[in-house]
């Protein structure tokens, strides 16, 4: 290693100090992940339950602040079971990145509410947990067990899940362009924690709009303090804004839209909660990035978003 580094710096008149620095930099590659991980250690969130990461603790600390005030122009829809906020300096790895968080408050359900086939997956989780206990090799308690199955259509996935009230949200003029995936998650003991499906479509003139939808159902075994999703964005490139949308039926949805001077892809996200189910839609418009087309994209995505929300 040293000789190779010597060769590297030959002719560059680099000092021995520089070389020593490079050796130390290289040696640091071997440091354990727990030493280079910025987040502090995990903390238990309940008896026999999943653990929350410190990053999530920070997230909820910020969320608590946001419940009584505004941060970076964020808005909180206090009366809704959906809220959003921007947290700055929340990412210890990259202070330039800001996050917008969408927090859900759906009702949590009993695992018994799912159909036989999902329960069979849970039974498989429990069987795994039993064997792991017998072998003395327990599954990590901070990582959910995962099981994924693909379906040709959203309807097939819904039939498989067998949960009353869970419905297809694709609009008639959307064309499926990717498989529908079902994810079933469990905890260390093998108990069912979450079931979710995601589907992908294309629509619009020239099918320029890509649509991804998700539906998530959280069980009583989900022990994180709350549910939600956080996504990074960079304020030097764009900003985001959350808007409330009330449907003709009086239901309130949340729409997250970007605000920026330029850019290539215009996108928009929508969230609705119906009983125990969190429905999410992500819309992307593949444009050339010119302002004229961006205006068209905004109108087109808004139209699709409103049509999607009006079905609730």
């Amino acid at each position: 290693m040293k000789r190779r580094m010597d060769k590297d710096v030959r002719g560059k008149e680099k000092s021995g100090k520089w070389l020593a620095g490079q050796q130390i930099m290289a040696a640091m590659n071997g440091l354990d992940e727990e030493l280079v991980e910025i987040r502090p250690a995990v903390k238990s969130c309940g008896d026999g339950a999943l653990k929350r990461t410190a990053a999530r603790r920070v997230k909820w600390a910020v969320a608590a602040v946001c419940s009584v005030c505004l941060i970076s122009g964020s808005v909180v829809f206090a009366a809704s079971r959906l809220s959003w906020h921007i947290g700055d300096s929340i990412d210890p790895h990259n202070p330039d990145a800001d996050y917008y968080w969408v927090d859900f408050k759906p009702d949590q359900v009993s695992a018994d509410a799912f159909g036989e086939q999902v329960r069979a997956v849970e039974a498989g989780f429990k069987e795994e947990a039993k064997k792991e206990a017998e072998n003395g090799t327990p599954y990590p308690d901070d990582i959910p067990r995962g099981w994924v199955k693909e379906f040709a259509t959203e309807k097939e996935a819904l039939d498989y899940i067998g949960f009353d009230g869970l419905r297809e949200t694709a609009l008639p003029d959307w064309n499926a362009w990717h498989i529908t995936a079902l994810g079933v998650y469990g905890n260390q003991e093998g108990n069912l924690t979450k079931v979710g499906i995601s589907s992908h479509y294309r629509t619009g003139d020239g099918e320029k709009i890509e649509v991804s939808t998700e539906a998530e159902i959280f069980t009583e075994n989900w022990c994180y303090e709350s549910m939600g999703i956080g996504k990074p964005f960079w304020q030097d490139e764009q900003d985001v804004e959350g808007k409330e949308y009330v449907t003709g039926n009086g239901k309130t949805g949340l729409i997250i839209v970007p605000e920026y001077d330029g850019g290539f892809n215009y996108w928009m996200e929508g969230y609705m909660i119906e009983g125990e189910i969190v429905y999410t839609i992500n819309l992307n418009y593949n444009s050339k990035g010119d302002l004229e087309e961006r205006g068209l994209a905004e109108d087109a995505l808004t139209k699709v978003m409103h049509e999607w929300m009006e079905q609730f």
Binding site: G16, A20, Q22, I24
Partner: peptide, 9 residues
């Protein structure tokens, strides 16, 4: 910068 801590390893 880091090399300043260890003139020669």
């Amino acid at each position: 910068e880091l090399g300043k801590c260890a003139p020669d390893v």
